[in-house]
């Protein structure tokens, strides 16, 4: 992080001189950045159980759309995200401060606005095994932008293993679910995703999926 801070600062120092502007100008980019670099890193405060449950109830009442609770432990952040759009099999959920993620039948295929975003994924084979609660080996592709904004693909081979049956309780849901693990490996990296899949209909109720080094894993729970 220090490197990032310093490089930010170095670039900032060169253009500290942003001042203010009017018209088309994107005002004060330099100042904004410098402030960001100098501001003490605030430890995000996680809501306590009561607050969270109130937030979920409120959100559930506010919309009849599908809705998920999302936690990013590594970033210490939690959000409740209603579905804001659906496109074929893909559902995009978003927050009012414009962070979003896209799910394909409950599995994350893309994120936006988190930084080091997952741009797109090929997960059909993994979806079939996970939803079917069947063991097997599949290929998974996740695409990112690198430091030069070029698309790079992370191709992994994943081993899917169904496990124990558990009770899944969240929001309006109280279901019997099967745990499914997906362990993925590539030459330079490895990660494990964990799912809880509805025992009756194969719906992914909970997904804990690795996204990127900056974000670590996302935990997504269906609330409706």
């Amino acid at each position: 992080m220090t490197r990032r801070f310093l490089s930010g600062l170095a670039a900032g120092a060169l253009v500290v001189l942003a001042g203010c502007s009017g018209g088309d100008g994107d005002s004060g980019a330099g100042l904004k950045m410098l402030k960001g670099a100098l501001a003490p890193k605030q430890e995000a405060k996680l809501p306590d159980a009561a607050q969270l449950s109130a937030l979920m109830q409120q959100s559930l009442q506010a919309t009849d759309q599908p809705i998920v609770a999302v936690a990013i432990p590594k970033r210490k952040s939690i959000a409740v995200m209603p579905r804001i759009e659906s496109n074929g099999a893909y559902a995009t959920h978003g927050t009012s401060d414009r962070r979003s993620l896209t799910l394909k039948q409950g599995m994350v295929t893309a994120t936006r606005g988190l930084g080091e975003d997952l741009m797109s994924s090929d997960v059909d084979a993994a979806l079939a095994l996970v939803r079917g609660r069947k063991p097997g080996s599949v290929q998974r592709v996740q695409r990112y932008l690198d430091g030069e904004n070029q698309t790079v693909a992370l191709e992994t081979t994943c081993r899917v293993t169904p496990g124990a049956t558990v009770r899944y309780q969240a929001g309006e849901l109280d279901r019997r679910a099967v745990k499914v693990q997906e362990s993925c490996k590539a030459q330079t990296t490895q990660f494990t995703n964990n799912y809880q899949v509805d025992a009756a209909n194969g719906r992914i109720l909970q997904a804990q999926q690795w996204i990127s080094p900056l974000n670590g894993a996302l935990l997504i729970q269906q609330l409706r």
């Binding site: 995009t92 978003g94 401060d97 414009r98 936006r112 930084g115 990112y144 932008l145 904004n149």
Partner: peptide
């Protein structure tokens, strides 16, 4: 090696 690969700006509309 930029501050954040791909940028940290907010999400687009879908």
């Amino acid at each position: 090696k930029p501050a954040v690969n791909g940028g940290a700006e907010t999400a687009p509309v879908p």
